[in-house]
C-alpha cells in the first residue's frame, strides 16, 4: 500500500522539534531512521499529518564517556553502535547485540532512540538497555528528566514517554573487570526478530554472582527482567547447579503468548535453553577456553 498523504518538516534543533510538537500535537510524529515508522505508515495503521525528521538535530547525536557513564545519543545508528570503540570497551553487550538486529541496510538507518521508543517486545536493544541497568534521558520543552530503563518500558509497544517528549540519549554504567555480559537468541533466520532472546549482565566476584540481570525478549509484552531467576543466582557461585536453579526459577518470571512460531510452552522452553547457553559462557572452563 501507499503511504497516506502527510507533511514533512526537518528540524535542526530540539527547540524546533518541541515547537512543531506543540503546534501539531498528536498529529505530529517523530521520524528517526524510519525503519519502523515508514513501514507502519505503508500499512496505513496510523495516519499522522506531519512527520518531524529529527535526524538533523545535533544534540541527539554522539557517543561519549561522561562522569563514569557512557552516553549514547538517540540518533546513534545501529551500525555506528556496532563499530564504536567506546561502546565495545564500556558496554560490550551492545556491540554483541548489533549483528542480531535486522540486516546491514536496516542497521545503517535504524537508530537506538527509534528502537527504544518503538519498544518492540522482540527487539534486542530494549532488553540490552534494561540488562545494563541504564538510564533513559528524556527531553521536552520543560527540560530533561531521567527514567530508569526498567521503568521505561510499560507495556506492549508502550513506554513512559509523555506527549511532547523524546528520547535524547541513554546513559549506560560502564563495565568493570568483574562485569560479564552476553546476548543469545533463537531466530528463524538471521536478522529476524527473535522467537526468544536473552540479554544478561552480571558481576563475577571471586566466582560469586553479583547483581545478575537476566532480561528476556520476544517472550512477553516488552523486555522481561526475570526477578526470580535473578534472585536464584544472586550471591551463588556460578556453576551448573546455579544455572539449573535459575532455569527452574524462570517459570515464575515468564508468561509468554503464543505467536506464529509456536505455543507458550515452546517459548518457555527456549528461554530455559538460552539461560543455559548464556550463563555457561561465564563458567570458568568456558572463560579459559575463550
Amino acid at each position: 500500500m501507499k503511504w497516506p498523504a502527510f507533511g514533512y518538516a526537518r528540524a535542526s534543533t530540539l527547540e524546533e522539534v518541541f515547537r512543531l510538537q506543540a503546534e501539531h500535537g498528536d498529529d505530529a510524529r517523530l521520524l528517526a531512521g524510519g525503519q519502523t515508522l515508514l513501514a507502519t505508515l505503508a500499512f496505513r495503521l496510523s495516519e499522522p499529518k506531519l512527520l518531524v525528521d529529527i535526524t538533523g538535530v545535533a544534540a541527539l547525536r554522539g557517543i561519549a564517556l561522561q562522569g563514569g557513564l557512557l552516553r549514547i545519543g538517540a540518533l546513534t545508528r545501529h551500525a555506528e553502535l556496532g563499530r564504536d570503540p567506546l561502546v565495545a570497551q564500556h558496554a560490550p553487550l551492545l556491540t554483541e547485540a548489533v549483528p542480531f538486529i535486522a540486516h546491514p541496510a536496516i542497521r545503517n538507518r535504524g537508530t537506538i532512540g527509534g528502537s527504544l521508543a518503538y519498544a518492540d517486545p522482540a527487539a534486542e536493544l530494549p532488553a540490552c538497555i534494561v540488562a545494563l541497568d541504564s538510564t533513559m534521558v528524556l527531553a521536552s520543552a520543560a527540560g530533561e528528566r531521567r527514567v530508569a530503563a526498567g521503568d521505561f518500558f510499560t507495556g506492549l509497544l508502550e513506554t513512559a514517554l509523555r506527549p511532547g517528549e523524546l528520547i535524547a540519549a541513554v546513559e549506560v554504567p560502564v563495565a568493570t573487570d568483574a562485569s560479564r555480559s552476553a546476548i543469545v537468541e533463537v531466530a528463524r533466520r538471521s536478522g529476524d526478530y527473535a522467537m526468544a532472546g536473552l540479554a544478561t549482565t552480571l558481576r563475577l566476584e571471586g566466582g560469586v554472582i553479583r547483581a545478575p540481570r537476566l532480561v528476556y525478549f520476544g517472550v512477553g509484552n516488552g523486555p522481561v527482567l526475570a526477578a526470580r531467576a535473578n534472585a536464584a543466582l544472586e550471591g551463588r557461585s556460578l556453576d551448573a547447579a546455579a544455572i539449573a536453579a535459575a532455569r527452574a526459577a524462570l517459570a515464575g518470571d515468564l508468561d509468554p503468548q503464543a505467536d506464529l512460531h509456536g505455543p507458550p510452552e515452546m517459548k518457555r522452553h527456549l528461554a530455559g535453553v538460552l539461560t543455559q547457553r548464556a550463563l555457561s559462557r561465564f563458567l570458568p572452563a568456558a572463560e579459559a577456553a575463550a
Partner: peptide
Amino acid sequence: PARILRALGTV
C-alpha cells in the same frame, strides 16, 4: 522448531 520440539517430546 515448534514441530521438531514436539516430535522430540520437548514441548
